[in-house]
């Protein structure tokens, strides 16, 4: 989470520069919609879900009902399950019967207790990255036939293409950290200007001209140069990473 509220206008500008849409709601809307489509195209499914996964963590989840959502939640609390497996192995996972399948013992017994008996999960792939998983659940064992599997596989291709364009919270974190770095850098320039104005009796424009001249003649990056002036003035103990 951001420690400080950022100017939304600036955030939007940066998002536009990066060619991204800056709303988490967009991702949420997309996964909800796709979960619904997955269920509609799979008549044997009692529920369907779509999860966006980043680094083993689920960043967005869309589900057609509470059973799907809680069965999905279980995977992340237990750290195992068909969707996580589909995501990490990049292969579709068919689970015919949760009461007998031994691959995910903890998840299977918990899911079976909640009423989920079979599950088919396909990975959402974008290039070399697995971005999540799409799955259908049923209350009866071995509910899904080859036609269901084929349809869900084709749907997953279209879903991946769509979701790949929706930003995940990881990108949003990256953008806000870029934004913070850029605002911090501007701040340093402002302080350095103020210090020169006070110390050498310059106008604001003269102070800025003086700073650019120093950067040119010394070859020191501007951010480093201004940070040095600010630190030399004893304003802070900032450690610059440039």
């Amino acid at each position: 989470m951001d420690p400080s509220p950022l100017s939304s206008e600036l955030g939007t500008t940066l998002g536009r520069i990066r060619g991204l849409v800056l709303t988490q709601e967009t991702a949420q809307h997309a996964v909800d919609l796709l979960a619904q489509v997955a269920q509609d195209t799979t008549p044997n499914a009692s529920g369907a879900g779509v999860s966006l996964i980043h680094g083993g963590h689920r960043v967005s989840v869309g589900a057609t009902d509470d059973l799907v959502r809680s069965a999905d939640d279980l995977q992340y609390t237990l750290g195992e399950g068909p969707c996580l497996a589909a995501w990490s192995t990049r292969e579709a996972v068919m689970l015919e019967d949760t009461s007998s399948d031994q691959r995910f013992p903890a998840w299977s017994s918990a899911a079976s207790a909640e009423g989920v008996r079979s599950c088919f999960s396909v990975p959402l792939l974008r290039g070399r990255d697995a971005i999540g998983a799409m799955k259908v659940y049923s209350a009866v064992p071995a509910a899904f036939d080859e036609a269901d599997k084929t349809r869900l596989r084709s749907l997953s291709v279209a879903a991946s293409a769509l979701l790949g364009h929706v930003q995940t919270s990881a990108t949003s974190t990256r953008i806000s950290s870029e934004l913070r770095a850029s605002l911090r850098s501007r701040d340093l320039v402002g302080m350095a200007k103020g210090i020169l104005m006070q110390r050498e009796g310059l106008t604001e424009a003269e102070a800025l001209a003086d700073l650019t001249a120093r950067a040119r003649s010394s070859g020191v990056p501007f951010r480093q140069l201004t940070a040095d002036i600010v630190n030399g003035f004893g304003a802070s103990e900032e450690k610059e990473t440039r």
């Binding site: 870029e178 770095a181 850029s182 501007r186 402002g190 200007k193 951010r223």
Partner: peptide, 14 residues
């Protein structure tokens, strides 16, 4: 370089 990248750096230089 993209204009966006240039602007972002220019912006951070005040």
């Amino acid at each position: 370089l993209s204009v966006g990248d240039v602007w972002l750096r220019y912006f951070s230089l005040s």
